[in-house]
Nucleic acid binder design. Sequence first.
DNA 1: CTAGATGCAAACACTTTGCACCCTG
DNA 2: CAGGGTGCAAAGTGTTTGCATCTAG
Lengths: 150, 150
Amino acid sequence: MHDAANTSRLDALLAGLKASGHRLTPQRVAIVRELVSRADHPSVEQLHAAILPDYPTTSLATVYKTIHLLKERGEVLELGFGELGSRYDGRRPEPHPHLICTACGGITDPDEGGEGLSEMVRQLAAQSGFDVKAHRFDLFGLCARCRDKG
Amino acid sequence: MHDAANTSRLDALLAGLKASGHRLTPQRVAIVRELVSRADHPSVEQLHAAILPDYPTTSLATVYKTIHLLKERGEVLELGFGELGSRYDGRRPEPHPHLICTACGGITDPDEGGEGLSEMVRQLAAQSGFDVKAHRFDLFGLCARCRDKG
DNA sequence: CTAGATGCAAACACTTTGCACCCTG
DNA sequence: CAGGGTGCAAAGTGTTTGCATCTAG
């Protein structure tokens, strides 16, 4: 996931918004750019903080509204955690496993190892009679860095 | 999961509480009994409503406190959903897959089909360097009943 | 008796909403 | 220059907490 890919994804998102009659305000562009540029699944709070220096008037409500808009369009994956609030993945909106470090709060996408996931989803759907539309697979623990420290 | 099994689990939970210096108040017993007796992963609100007829003075706060106590002791599995609040599994505190119907709100445990899960967890842990302590695997969709209706 | 539990209400954290003003297209 | 967007503050959730009162053991 390098700069070129992020840029094209950014452009695609912005083009899509414009195409469906939405305006590209500076705040909105900044939020989307920030969201797409990071791999760390930021919270609304973190996005807001990151944008504030460059767009000091941006309100938290606007960040929430923008995220909500992208969610509706299926362009962000929301990872809601009861206590810790929600975190957002603007790069890979399809469901995929997440590794959540309970020490540093970092969330990362595994490089590989989730191959059998869709097969398992298929199996569970078949035996339960469920029509499965989405799924979520989270692993909680200590990331390599925090494990070594602790 | 029949009555006898639930009764013994209930007894075990109550005995454990008493053994660690907690009192078995009528409210507390009622909450634990209700939690253990249902397979539908009730919310705090639902537990409270179920108990109210028999123990009319029970407050929501007490239900929250009791659930919290059981959580600390590792005797309930909490399934937190950002918007919809949390649901609790008092029967199987270890992580296992859940099927969540987005139409009726029902949550069920699959009878089988989750066999490969721990292996996948192991794989993801190995390749990422994570020390995985817990995991969560949720499938969202329509249960058989709601699928047929809709 | 006396710690621990209850119940109420106030406090909380995160998110949503209403509305007057603003600015993109 | 019109309609969508913004920012503020107020309202909503679900959950937690402080504290006086009550009660199980």
